[in-house]
Design a protein around this nucleic acid. Structure first.
Lengths: 356, 356
DNA sequence: AATTAGCACTCTAGATGATAGAGTGCTAAT
DNA sequence: ATTAGCACTCTATCATCTAGAGTGCTAATT
């Protein structure tokens, strides 16, 4: 008989229970554990161990005569210590990579596409949080005159996001004036975080000596209107309806709450922005979330960055009973992929002759 | 005794049943009808009439011993002939109007806001469909050089939508060249529908005599990349979770289907684009929809336009058992509001004469 | 001929109880 | 330390029952 220390065996059994429960969704009993894993011990022994695991808080009972179900603590231990990371299949990787090929350049479409794919491949809800204006820097600022009293401002950020805003002006500005203003702004705009524009840009402009009072007043106007946006990052979210397909969410009331949170997005944004600070792929299990409505869910999330700066987050939301190993691999992969996309050198370009 | 002709009385009773059912959600019995409306007839008489209405297809029975419930045909008749339109309360109108004040200019935020408000005020799901590129005309086209090999194209449409796209180029273009190209394009861009740009712009450019071959090749590139978007209109949609709060949607299976449709948006877009052709506020009840998954829903939808051209649609999706009179008023009001917003005078808009 | 009272009938929703099965926890034996 | 054995608990399911709601029909009334 194999000599397994008690601790080791406890872990083994915990692992079996969780693994099993994740796949079947049904509470796991002592008999099942032995059957499926040909352990050479009796049910009674297993029951003893289960009782201990329960006392220690890794498992529970829905009721006296049912099998065991993992607690949050159980899942946590599983994710941290027991689970072995999975790899995506070659096929999956190719499929993803191929989808990315076509999405060159525009960051917003990359993000939208990513959330869609996360959702599709996980069968849960996928999301991507855009860089928050606090960390994303301004790269370009373009002004376009729409008609006499309206100007379109287009912001391009370091990360590659593009935002626009229509502004109203009182004084007429002719094209060449606009060009000058534009040039002036762009000279002073580089490296300011999108959030700080209002405060920073004036400081910088004071360094320049600007003759025309008109320019200053216009710019003031612009800055006021265009950058009064203290938005958080935006959230791309796809596959919300997948939540409904989860047998775990049979309770109407709970599902409704989950949906309310997802629908509003705002709460989710806050939750995630906090996570952005931590590098790497994280799992939030059940009650670990600060958001009461999501206590029946787990969130697997990671960050992406350009260079050394963490910009945003991405991930999936699903039931606590999820295939963590797979999901972590998935989120991880996408995180790396976005990183790669973002740090792609901007000048490369080659044409392939064999066009379809 | 009041002299009501039979036909008239039938309608009255149908009206009572529907009205009642809409508010209570419970099948309506003969006693209830008399109680709540102090009709001076006996339950037996009412039962006779109900039987007739059922034979004619306006009502049904869930089962032998329950009250009556409207059929789709019943609702249809109610909406077309029986219902009296409601007005929004002053308070509601003010609340809406106030929200709109702050949203000047940018059409996308107006639309997003509108779908949110539709959802909030109806407690159902609100949506707004942006003008489809087939009907929306190009107004301005701005090119911004991002770095050596990428150009940002910003499209402004007649309706006020703003789209952008990043394009890759092979040859380097310096700023002044870009300005020329930009000017050239803008001169030839006015009044082309966003869908037709690819085809049309070249036709127009041939009228001009362009010397530089380089320009042409670049423009070709631009047109290829930037306008290969044969998208339909985009859909802003809010309050999906409200569906879950409807007691009518207790059947999990059905809700899931509804959500799938809503989640995908695409199907909904197609459904709505079709409706765009019909001016005015329309109601789609239950099985009248071409979309099987929405047979348990009703859709109240209207269009909005700028000048004489219908651009897009907006509305709400809810259960068949909805307060039609209120919802129609609501959707109608928003439709008018968007119209007003869109036709707000812009000061510098020359109209082309007699363009079909 | 339209209305109505009266009544039998049907169906639902909710309560009750009975039963089989799953799985535990404990005790005493190995 | 492990295990066999057994009593116990809880669920899920199915059948049965009952009250209540509401109908549909028939025969009487106006």
């Amino acid at each position: 008989m194999s000599k397994i220390s008690l601790e080791e065996r406890k872990q083994k059994i915990l692992q079996i229970v969780i693994h099993h429960y994740i796949r079947s969704g049904k509470p796991v009993g002592s008999e099942t554990i032995i059957e499926k894993n040909k352990l050479e011990v009796s049910p009674a022994t297993v029951r003893n161990i289960l009782a201990v695991l329960e006392k220690e808080g890794y498992l529970t009972h829905p009721h006296t005569s049912s099998g065991r179900v993992p607690t949050d603590k159980g899942y946590r231990f599983y994710v941290d210590s027991l689970m072995q990371l999975q790899q995506l299949t070659q096929e999956e990787e190719q499929r993803i990579e191929k989808e990315y090929e076509s999405q060159r350049g525009a960051l917003d479409s990359v993000m939208q596409e990513t959330s869609k794919m996360l959702s599709m491949l996980s069968h849960y809800t996928g999301f991507v949080l855009t860089p928050s204006p606090a960390v994303d820097h301004l790269k370009r600022l373009e002004l376009v005159k729409l008609d006499r009293d309206r100007i379109l401002a287009v912001l391009v950020t370091d990360a590659g996001l593009i935002r626009h805003k229509i502004m109203e002006i009182e004084q007429d500005v002719n094209s060449s004036e606009l060009v000058s203003i534009n040039r002036l702004l762009n000279k002073n705009v580089y490296g300011i975080s999108v959030n700080d524009i209002g405060a920073e840009i004036f400081k910088r402009l004071q360094q320049e000596k600007i003759k025309q009072v008109k320019y200053i007043s216009i710019m003031e106007k612009l800055v006021q209107q265009a950058f009064a946006l203290d938005e958080e990052g935006e959230l791309y979210l796809e596959g919300a309806s997948n939540i409904l397909s989860q047998p775990d969410f049979a309770d109407y009331e709970k599902v409704r709450n989950i949906f309310k949170v997802i629908d509003e997005k705002k709460m989710l944004c806050e939750l995630l922005e906090e996570k952005v600070s931590h590098e790497g792929t994280k799992v939030i299990i059940g009650e670990e979330t600060p958001c009461k409505e999501l206590q029946e869910c787990s969130i697997v999330t990671s960050t992406y960055r350009a260079g050394d700066k963490t910009l945003g987050a991405l991930g999936i939301i699903g039931p606590k009973r999820m295939e963590y190993s797979k999901m972590i691999a998935l989120v991880d992969y996408f995180s790396k992929l976005i990183n790669k996309t973002l740090s792609r050198p901007t000048k490369e370009l080659k044409r392939e002759p064999g066009k379809k």
